[in-house]
């Protein structure tokens, strides 16, 4: 199960395809402050990354990474600024 959505957390595991957005997006809307754990997430479709950024998801397990997960962290203010 690449994606598990509970009231405590969203856990992304392995590669997350664009089709997962159908489930992820409503969950993000319902749980704006709940952490999204990407510790074991090896990759994600652009649409997944976009929806995580757009919803300002609180990402866990991306610190100290140098791969694609940097996109989720980089310049949080930069993303936020643009959102206003």
């Amino acid at each position: 199960m690449p994606i598990s959505l509970t009231s405590e957390a969203a856990v992304l595991d392995g590669y997350i395809d664009i089709t997962e957005v159908d489930a992820l997006y409503p969950w993000l809307q319902d749980h704006p402050e709940t952490p999204v754990d990407v510790t074991d997430c090896t990759g994600a479709h652009t649409a997944v990354v976009q929806v995580l950024i757009a919803c300002g998801a609180s990402i866990q397990g991306a610190a100290d990474t140098t791969d694609w997960r940097q996109y989720l962290l980089a310049d949080r203010q930069f993303y936020a600024k643009k959102r206003t």
Partner: peptide, 22 residues
């Protein structure tokens, strides 16, 4: 590389996640 967000993000509820904005 970096992602450049759009000038005008729609508010959270009005996002069409399948429309590319970034």
């Amino acid at each position: 590389s970096r992602i450049v967000p759009p000038e005008d993000w729609p508010v959270s509820g009005e996002i069409d996640p399948f429309m590319l904005a970034i």
